[in-house]
Design a protein around this nucleic acid. Structure first.
Length: 353
DNA sequence: AAGCCGGGGTG
DNA sequence: CACCCAGGCTT
């Protein structure tokens, strides 16, 4: 098989848990490698196995010693589960990890993928694994769309993974699949020309390598709307308002803003003399980390300040000529809007109110 | 199905 | 900063 042929010269053969490849060491490595990269794990693995070389010694160790050996790896529930599982193996399985899939799955910290990895790597049994690397390889190879954590997609990936299992050399096959994901079929900039699966890789054929696996759907952000005033005076200056309050734009100069067109009209009436009605421009969206803001710009040309702009009680207002805009601290979407307006005004004829 | 655990790397 | 990484457990 192509994967095994690739593995001989290009796979990783020198990882510490491969020598010797005992069930205990495979198990420990699998737990350490959950959500943690190989580079990080190696030193911890060597320290841990030096102190606790086999399952009985782990079971006999104190909680404090186990946690100390784990310290720095994170996800400390993994260490607690590991220790508890070792003790359970002393009670239930004669001091060794079981070779039965369901018995493995019943141990704390061992899920479907880790159980499969232990059986395949330590015992050569035909069980599939499905970790992040393998999900990526399989999703690309077969062109599987959808977020891999979604249950339907995950089912499809497991099914594909199991359909691929060879009859022998399960330890090498399993390692080959992970190595391919880690070194060739990487998340960014995969080395497709070096991939043993490139001939029938669906993602490669369809040019979707970078798109697969489908990314986790972005969290749905709450939506907010506002109206912004683009008021220009006769000389082409725009009215700005200094933002106060707790918002993200506090302290920045921005366009006068109101929750809706009605409130904005009230603002205009209070602070400006304008000729004609507002010209409502197409709304656009700006995404913050915590919400989406839909901005509807309202443009007024030939506006004049009704009051002194430096009124003590009212909002802090000023007129700003286009030449000044680059030096004023403006929120990015406001700057963008002003620039598009500037370009628009210079290329189009006089607006009709 | 979504949140959580946690430290580290990456664009 | 968002997202991801040799996942699994809890709600």
């Amino acid at each position: 098989m192509r994967l095994l042929d690739w593995f001989e010269p290009h796979g990783r053969h020198d990882l510490p848990w491969q020598h010797p490849r005992s069930a205990y060491r495979v198990w420990l490595s699998e737990i350490m490698l959950q959500q943690t990269q190989v580079q990080t794990v190696i030193a911890y693995f060597e320290r841990f196995t030096a102190a606790l070389p086999d399952l009985p010694s782990l079971a006999a160790a104190s909680h404090d010693e186990v946690m100390a050996l784990w310290s720095g790896l994170g996800y400390y529930a993994r260490a607690r589960n590991l220790h508890a599982a070792a003790k359970l193996c002393m009670e239930r399985h004669g001091g060794a990890l079981p070779t039965d899939f369901d018995a493995l799955l019943a141990l704390p910290g061992i899920g479907r993928s880790t159980a499969g990895a232990i059986l395949a790597q330590a015992h050569g049994l035909a069980f599939a694994i499905l970790d992040g690397n393998v999900k990526r390889v399989l999703a690309r190879w077969r062109g599987i769309d959808g977020w891999p954590a979604a249950s339907a997609v995950e089912r499809e990936l497991w099914q594909f993974a199991e359909s691929l299992l060879p009859n022998d050399r399960l330890p090498d096959y399993t390692q080959a699949l992970m190595d391919l994901g880690a070194t060739v079929c990487t998340r960014t900039r995969p080395a497709c020309p070096r991939c043993p699966l490139r001939q029938d890789c669906v993602a490669r054929r369809e040019g979707r390598v970078e798109q697969l696996p489908t990314r986790k759907p972005a969290k749905i952000l709450p939506r907010r709307e506002c109206a912004m005033l683009l008021a220009f005076d006769e000389s082409g200056r725009v009215l700005l308002q200094k933002r106060g309050g707790p918002g993200v734009w506090n302290g920045l100069w921005s366009l006068p803003e109101a929750p809706d067109a009605y409130s904005l009209a009230a603002f205009i009436q209070r602070h400006l003399r304008t000729r004609g009605a507002a010209h409502v421009l197409p709304a656009f969206e700006h995404v913050f980390s915590h919400y989406r803001l839909t901005i509807t710009p309202h443009r007024h040309s030939a506006a004049q300040a009704r009051l002194r702009v430096a009124d003590n009680n009212g909002p802090e207002l000023r007129w700003a000529a286009p030449a000044e805009w680059p030096d004023i601290g403006l929120p990015a979407p406001v700057r963008q809007l002003l620039q598009s307006q500037c370009a628009h005004q210079s290329t189009s004829s006089e607006e009709t109110p």
